[in-house]
Simulated scan of single mutants.
Amino acid sequence: MVALHRSSLSLIALAALLMISPSLAQTTAPSSPGLVPLQARPKVRIAVLNFDFSNIGLTGAVYSFTDSAGPSKAVSTLLTNLLVKDGTYVVVERSRIDAVLAEQNLGQAGRIEPTTAAQVGRILGVDAVVIGSVTEFGLEQKKGGVNILGFGSQKETQIARVQLAARIVSTTTGEILSVAEAKGEATQVDESISVGGYGSTAQGSNASDRLLSTAAQQALEEVKTKFVAEADKLAALPPVVPLIETLVAHVAGPEITFNKGGTDGLRPGMILQVERVSGEIRDPATGKVLTRKTTPLGRVQLVQVQPNFSVGKVLRGQGFKVGDVAKAVQ
């Protein structure tokens, strides 16, 4: 009787556990035949494009802080660094962005519209793109002083002001998801004493550079804080399907290895369409490929993604070979 009583209690406890957590019996079952259960979604991937320089308030020389490309590139680089240090998002490297902009002939285009930014973002395989404008980037100088019988003092004040307007654009829809406007200001006062009209101050391009950098940093901290607060909103977006092609690098039965991975926006659970190129049509004048003839071979779902390669399981199809082309379809 004691054994029977204990058995009954065990059955009751098991039934109660299943009633409380019915999902426990389903955690290993895939949602659809042949599909691998999706892993938790990784961090949102973003790219910061060069800000356009729409300001007319830059006074004096172009300081070293602005670099040869003007303040827009310097500001974009600073924002990229701040977001990387924060760690909320995965931020694409500037070199990859510059390469894609060059391929799309957008390197010197200036202002990039949201629809164009979304297209660039899909090529980069990111969920959202940050674009913006430098609306003020100026240095104001004020001088004053006194002179009595050849002895005098001078005061020189420099005020750096930076104002920015930034937007987050969804690469899936081209919609502007968030807007941030911010200002930064930095001041430096230098005094000098002159005798008989001779004197000196410590002013120079380095001081101006530091002031502009400080003002820009203040404004960018505001932008970063605003955009980090939007992380949950961005995480709710549907995952972007990257506009990239990858090649089959290895075939081992139902396991296929591809030569691109997370760096290009591929993620576990994505499904790739694998095709074999049977011919190319080239422009006779430039030699550029106009279109290709391909034969569909099947579909593969990614189950492991590393930065530079990924591994998938065949869902359907056969005859895959090294060198076959694949692209994400969902």
Score class of each variant (00 low, 15 high):
Ser10Trp: 00
Ser10Tyr: 01
Ser10Asn: 02
Leu11Met: 04
Leu11Gln: 03
Ala13Cys: 04
Ala13Leu: 09
Ala13Val: 01
Ala13Thr: 00
Ala15Ser: 14
Ala15Trp: 00
Ala15Phe: 04
Ala15Thr: 07
Ala15Asp: 01
Ala16Lys: 01
Ile20Phe: 02
Ser21Ala: 12
Ser21Asp: 05
Pro22Cys: 08
Pro22Met: 07
Pro22Ser: 08
Ser23Pro: 00
Ser23Ile: 02
Ser23Cys: 01
Leu24Met: 11
Leu24Gln: 09
Ala25Phe: 00
Ala25Asp: 00
Gln26Tyr: 10
Gln26Val: 09
Gln26Thr: 11
Thr27Cys: 09
Thr28Val: 04
Thr28Pro: 00
Thr28Ser: 15
Ala29Leu: 15
Ala29Trp: 11
Pro30Cys: 09
Pro30Ser: 13
Ser31His: 07
Ser31Leu: 14
Ser31Asp: 10
Ser32Asp: 05
Pro33Arg: 04
Gly34Thr: 10
Gly34Pro: 11
Gly34Phe: 11
Gly34Ser: 12
Gly34Arg: 11
Leu35Ala: 13
Leu35Cys: 05
Val36Ile: 15
Val36Asn: 10
Gln39Tyr: 02
Gln39His: 06
Gln39Ser: 15
Arg41Ser: 14
Arg41Thr: 12
Arg41Gly: 02
Arg41Gln: 13
Pro42Lys: 13
Pro42Ile: 12
Lys43Asn: 11
Lys43Thr: 05
Lys43Leu: 09
Arg45Thr: 11
Arg45Met: 07
Arg45Ile: 03
Arg45Val: 05
Ile46Tyr: 10
Ile46Gln: 11
Ile46Ala: 11
Ala47Gln: 02
Ala47Leu: 03
Val48Gly: 04
Val48Lys: 04
Val48Ala: 04
Leu49Thr: 06
Leu49Glu: 06
Leu49His: 07
Asn50Cys: 03
Phe51Lys: 03
Phe51Thr: 03
Phe51His: 07
Phe51Pro: 02
Asp52Met: 00
Phe53Ser: 05
Phe53Thr: 04
Phe53Gln: 12
Ser54Leu: 12
Ser54Trp: 01
Ser54Thr: 15
Ile56Met: 05
Ile56Glu: 13
Ile56Tyr: 08
Gly57Thr: 14
Gly57Asp: 14
Gly57Glu: 14
Leu58Lys: 06
Thr59Lys: 12
Val62Thr: 08
Tyr63Cys: 05
Ser64His: 05
Ser64Asp: 15
Thr66Asp: 12
Asp67Leu: 14
Ser68Arg: 14
Ser68Pro: 00
Ser68Asn: 13
Ala69Thr: 03
Gly70Glu: 06
Gly70Lys: 06
Pro71Leu: 02
Pro71Lys: 01
Pro71Tyr: 01
Ser72Glu: 12
Ser72Met: 01
Ser72Cys: 07
Ser72His: 03
Lys73Gly: 03
Lys73Cys: 02
Lys73His: 13
Ala74Arg: 09
Ala74Tyr: 06
Val75Pro: 02
Thr77Arg: 06
Thr77Trp: 00
Leu78Ile: 10
Leu79Phe: 08
Leu79Ala: 09
Thr80Ala: 10
Asn81Leu: 12
Asn81Glu: 15
Leu82Glu: 15
Leu83Lys: 04
Leu83His: 06
Val84Phe: 12
Val84Lys: 13
Lys85Trp: 04
Lys85Gly: 03
Lys85His: 10
Asp86Pro: 07
Asp86Arg: 11
Asp86Gln: 14
Gly87Ser: 11
Gly87Ile: 11
Gly87Lys: 09
Gly87Asn: 09
Thr88Asn: 12
Thr88Pro: 06
Thr88Trp: 09
Thr88Gly: 08
Tyr89Trp: 02
Tyr89Pro: 02
Val90Cys: 00
Val90Ser: 13
Val90Ala: 10
Val91Gly: 07
Val92Met: 11
